[in-house]
Simulated assay, not measured.
Amino acid sequence: MRHIGLIAGAAAASLVAAGAITYAVAEDSGSGPRTPTADSADAGFARDMAVHHQQAVEMSYTVRDRTSDPDVRRLAYDIAQTQANQRGMLLGWLDLWGLPKVSADPPMTWMGMGDMASGKDGALMPGMATNSEMKKLGELSGRQAEVFYLQLMTDHHKGGIHMAEGCVAKCTVGVEKKLAQGMVDAQRSELQLMADMLRERGATPRS
């Protein structure tokens, strides 16, 4: 049953992605809000969350090949598919708005946290794994890989929720705010699921 729900969730995300892009085009035409500027929260969130999501996709595909556990593999697949779809939406909006996908400003500047984004060992934003942690994940296998992935993804989701809540508060494009709120709701649910999965493996979140 969990397998069916996760696959359905991924399929629904694909449909939402297509619909959201269409809605964004409609919203930006006619009497809709003006196109966001490069330094807006809308653009900053789209750029930063696209990078944040990309790492989640990479982690998920890595662990999928490092364990045979069906529950972890299904969770990883669902996260990878959902976040890849959402990343496509975010980058699509930047194209739609005619804005660059990279910025000279530090990550999180749109949230007033540009001076707090460390970038230490590749961890550019809250919750992101370091390059060393990504390398370690690729070297582990079995239960060790499962636990480390669940711990890394728990931190990743907490950082992602913080960023998405920032967009809910600061973004002005309605469809983007709705996507951000959807991220908050879905990732909170996955945090509970991952806590349960860690407990089943005799482990706990790192923070």
Rank of each mutant, 00 (worst) to 15 (best):
V184C: 04
R206E: 10
Q181V: 00
Y61I: 09
S132W: 00
K177Q: 15
G138A: 09
V72A: 14
P36I: 08
K135A: 09
G5T: 03
Q192H: 10
A8D: 10
G202V: 03
Q187T: 05
P106S: 03
Y149A: 03
Q144P: 05
D196N: 10
P36N: 07
D39Y: 08
S132T: 15
A41Q: 02
P36A: 11
L91T: 13
C167P: 08
Y77R: 10
Y77P: 00
L91Y: 06
S40I: 10
P126S: 12
L6T: 02
A18R: 13
M125V: 09
H53C: 00
C171E: 10
V63G: 01
F45Q: 10
L179S: 07
G19K: 06
K170F: 01
Y23E: 14
M134S: 08
T130Q: 06
M128Q: 14
P126F: 09
M108K: 03
L191V: 15
R34H: 13
I21D: 11
G142D: 05
A129Y: 01
Q144C: 03
E27D: 14
A129N: 06
A80L: 05
A203P: 10
L140G: 05
T62I: 10
M163D: 09
M89P: 00
L193F: 08
A18I: 12
P126A: 12
K170Y: 01
E165I: 12
V147D: 03
T154G: 13
Q187E: 07
Y149R: 05
A46Q: 06
D95V: 09
S40G: 13
R87N: 12
D155Y: 05
A41E: 04
K136G: 02
K101V: 09
K158V: 15
Q83W: 03
R34Q: 14
S68H: 11
G127K: 01
L150E: 01
G114A: 07
D155F: 04
K178C: 07
G92Q: 04
L91F: 05
M59F: 11
Y61S: 06
K120M: 12
D39A: 15
V72E: 06
V57M: 07
S141I: 04
L91H: 03
G30A: 09
L140Y: 01
A203C: 09
R199V: 08
W93K: 09
A123Q: 01
D28G: 15
K136T: 15
M197E: 14
T172C: 06
L191A: 08
Y77K: 08
Q181M: 13
R201G: 09
K178I: 11
L191E: 12
M116N: 13
A203V: 11
A56M: 04
A12S: 13
R143T: 14
A203K: 03
Q192A: 13
M194G: 07
A11P: 02
K101M: 05
S207W: 13
S103C: 08
D196G: 03
E176T: 12
